[in-house]
Nucleic acid binder design. Structure first.
Lengths: 193, 193
DNA sequence: AAGATATGTTACTTTTTGGTAACAAATAAA
DNA sequence: TTTATTTGTTACCAAAAAGTAACATATCTT
């Protein structure tokens, strides 16, 4: 019997990661984590308090906007910056099962740890939107409206893509559909900004 | 002890409706339905087979696109038609807890009854999009892309609004935020179509 | 080395969930 | 009427879930 709390905590968090990627946040129960990690339930309670606090820990390291580097805010070409940022968002979301599961979970939970996450995201969003406003001369509401339209739909389609192949005749579970969508987004920015 | 199968089935379906509105489709289990309806579990099994078949019955009556009247396809002004249809979609979704819960459930399920629902929706969508294409002269991919962008984001934001008040500085749990969003959508159609 | 504390194990209880068996009463068919 | 069939009730069973009590051992402090 070796005693190493740090290692045990890591084992638990790693187990959470595996469960999330496989079955989503909804499947992260005390029994599942205990089984997956090989650590007894009571230790999980002792080290993390509740399952929710455990999840909060896990989430912080996995959100796109939370880890967005504000240093590289738009310099010259606002239009290009906008296209780029959404491109990056799509790529991230399409490549990360955990992130998709997180976004899905958010839709059915108002848990404190999630609310905190959202609040921090809002702060980042505000900075980005303001910055785009200044450089483009567009109104705040306009920029907020457009970015909301794009991010929300991208989030939705990425989540949906896990269980559904076609949406509005678009192949959202493969590159072909997403290329068309990206083309539409680019077109929109060209016409609007 | 009165015997009336029709009434009992209605009681069960009504109970499903109440549970869905309160807690979402995920909460519709055999025990919950039995308790809410006051009907014993075994009768539910006898009359509906599985919980899924029960849900399928319930869903058919609640989808927006499934119940969309294709008779009123666009006549003259395509732009106005587009604006109207999304306006109707938003209103429906914002007013119906059950519909929101259905859309949320879809994001985490590929159950046969859901796949069938999606397929039927695709057929409707195809007809509408084609019709808009003809009248506007735009390419199919362009129209599909734009309507995808709008419907997906609206779906996402309506679902999210149940647990989250602000998204990208927009008040999505009140009319004020939605007015701004509608204004953005209208603006987009003016610039694009 | 002795005691205190942190770490870990085992086995248990409780609650919730899905599922069924056995029986009772009402209605329909003969 | 009497026999089948449908409808409904009661009381269970089994599995999975969360949660806890009691104990054992390693590690640190003094």
């Amino acid at each position: 019997m070796i005693k190493d709390r740090d290692l045990t905590e890591k084992r638990i968090l790693d187990a959470v990661g595996r469960i999330v990627e496989r079955e989503g946040f909804e499947a992260v129960g005390i029994n599942a984590v205990a089984a997956e990690s090989g650590v007894s339930k009571i230790l999980i309670y002792r080290y993390f308090g509740t399952i929710e606090q455990l999840l909060a820990k896990y989430m912080e390291q996995n959100d796109f906007w939370l880890n967005f580097n504000l240093a590289q805010l738009p310099q010259g070409d606002v239009k290009e910056f906008s296209k780029q940022i959404f491109r990056a968002y799509i790529q991230m979301l399409r490549n990360s099962p955990a992130l998709r599961k997180l976004y899905r979970w958010e839709l059915s939970s108002k848990h404190p740890s999630i609310e905190q996450l959202r609040q921090r995201r809002e702060e980042t969003a505000l900075k980005i939107i303001s910055s785009v406003c200044e450089l483009s001369g567009e109104s705040f509401d306009r920029v907020a409206g457009i970015s909301t339209l794009v991010t929300a739909s991208v989030s939705y389609l990425c989540i949906l893509g896990e269980n559904c192949g076609v949406y509005n005749s678009l192949q959202i579970d493969s590159d072909s559909g997403w290329e068309k969508l990206l083309e539409t987004i680019d077109f929109m920015f060209d016409k609007i900004l």
